[in-house]
Nucleic acid binder design. Structure first.
Lengths: 326, 326
DNA sequence: CCACTAATACTCAATTTGAGTACAATTGGG
DNA sequence: CCCAATTGTACTCAAATTGAGTATTAGTGG
């Protein structure tokens, strides 16, 4: 919605060609029992996402992505969806004028935590990079410092800029009376970036580091991509049965709930969650039972694949538990 | 979700560079009183969307898009959001190997139907290109032929392919017991494309034209982009107050309803629509009245901009009227 | 047999939704 | 000036959905 004054390029200068390259990057999410994991390539200074340039032998963007991921991590992807294309001239550092790198980001969901070792790719907890997003054990500790930092940042702005900053922060982080909205992951990251809180933004040393970092950085703009992915996924599980892309063939209802809780970063009301899953007809009995529960054995269920061919909008309309009924 | 075997490009051949260009294209939507309109450039054989290549003077993708649109149509864009990046090698016609054109598509919403004449850009009814999407006056006539065509197409497939085709068609078009889902615009277009029903798909003359076309084609893959945009917009008005980007400063509740109906392609229950808008606090009084209603004068209201800074998820959870209570 | 842990069943009030009916305030015509 | 037509607005009411429980069942490890 920015009304930035666009440079009025003269119409005919089509000849001023731009040396363009496109990077295909993947946010690959898997769910261990309790934590959502993302596949990263541990890097020299910081971790990066699996990625590689689009090449002429890639018939489609998606095929190119799959090829790179397979090569770099040995992982064969199942569910894949396009996330966003980043292409600001200065999104990394100032590149040579006349050349530009686009980054086409994808979200992929995989079932297990196989692979990993090959080529040194490693599964990392998503919340290592975005610790303020995990509310499962109450308000994340990181928010203490973030809130203070954002307040200071808002005050530094001119009167109206400051007020605007304050309102944006209140909205994104649920300060004041506002309540936390799990889907605003990208908005929160961008606010922190703008405010100079995340270390990626501090190349130009504008503001001092806010004490020991509460979070891990990622290379390039990969943390922004991760934030985009998490926000999208949190939104999507509410109206599409994508969560099952992360589950094994059979699972208990609590496994399912824990996985959803991990992704959405909040606790859910157990009985209501079950009611939802049952009334939506998302799962069916396997007849088996899981006995290692530590309590009464739990039915093992599986995803009813037919729902994909029934109504398209079946997801898990979450509603968090006030007092986590675990 | 296709498990296409990716070509195992040798890791090191980074040198095999690809001559890449990126096209920025815009689906610019406005709402006349009763019909959603899209801005097109009337073309030699068919219409195309405003578009132009990314150039080095464009600092950001969005700025580039705005510049091209302003240049080609004289229109200054307000709300803009990225839609999707298309990049299949054969999305148009077979290009020279070693070169590739990406298409980065945006959705823009504008308020009035100004502009237009400049450079010959013209507003066209969205349903000119996607006539099967408009259910406001009952089942669209085009669906008669489409249904028959899809049935024939399904039958042509092998046993299991045929059954799969049939199920997909039933889901997308709400055949059988399934009911129409307004958001599946892209799914429907892609099905028609695959089945060879839309004329773009018939360059290779695989199947005879289904009699006089029920729809207008667009150039390149622009109709696919338009379908993507309409589907996205239909989804978005349900949980974000984007509809107001299309409305004038002040309007009546019926204006608002008509605009929503135009976009979503269905009739709504008037009283419940009003209740929704009021309880969500989306609008406020202007104190003025519209007297040209042909009946009792209507209050003129305006969008309450503050809602953008309150809860983020305020939209119009539509629920169609069984018997259009107009 | 007991304490503990989970799983599962069932309840109930509050809220939201879907579909109306009723009535108010205009205009245009006879 | 009254009447039909047209549109706006208020209010009702049953059904369905949601939020937050309580109660009961079926295992475990001592």
């Amino acid at each position: 919605m920015s009304s930035s004054q666009p440079d009025r390029s003269s119409a005919a200068s089509d000849t001023e060609s731009l040396a363009l390259s496109a990077e295909l990057s993947a946010v690959i999410i898997a769910a261990s029992v309790d934590e959502p994991m993302v596949l990263v390539r541990p890097g020299a200074p910081v971790d990066t996402l699996p990625a590689g340039p689009l090449q002429s032998e890639h018939r489609t963007l998606e095929a190119g992505l799959r090829a790179w991921v397979e090569q770099q991590t040995g992982l064969h992807l199942g569910y894949v969806e396009q996330l966003y294309t980043f292409g600001d001239a200065d999104r990394i550092d100032m590149p040579a004028r006349g050349s530009r790198s686009l980054s086409i980001a994808y979200l992929a969901l995989v079932r297990a935590l196989r692979a990993s070792t090959r080529s040194g790719a490693r599964w990392q907890n998503v919340y290592t990079y975005l610790p303020w997003e995990d509310w499962r054990d109450g308000r994340p500790a990181a928010l203490e410092r973030i809130e203070a930092y954002l307040k200071a940042w808002a005050t530094k702005g001119l009167s109206d800029v400051g007020i605007m900053r304050e309102k944006r922060a209140a909205l994104a982080f649920g300060l004041g009376s506002d309540s936390w909205s799990d889907e605003l992951v990208l908005e929160r990251y961008e606010l922190l970036y703008e405010a100079g809180f995340v270390s990626e933004a501090r190349q130009d040393g504008e503001m001092a580091s806010p004490l020991p970092a509460v979070d891990d950085p990622m290379g390039l703009d990969h943390r922004r991509i991760l934030a985009t992915a998490l926000g999208r996924l949190r939104g999507k599980i509410k109206y599409r049965p994508v969560i099952f892309e992360l589950m094994p063939e059979s699972f208990t209802l609590l496994d399912l709930q824990r996985t959803v809780e991990g992704l959405s970063g909040m606790r859910l009301h157990k009985q209501n969650f079950r009611r939802l899953v049952e009334t939506q007809g998302l799962v069916e009995e396997t007849g088996e039972y899981e006995t290692e529960t530590g309590g009464r054995p739990a039915r093992l269920v599986r995803f009813r694949r037919e729902v994909l061919l029934e109504r398209p909008s079946l997801g898990l309309r979450l509603s968090s538990a006030k007092r986590p009924t675990i």
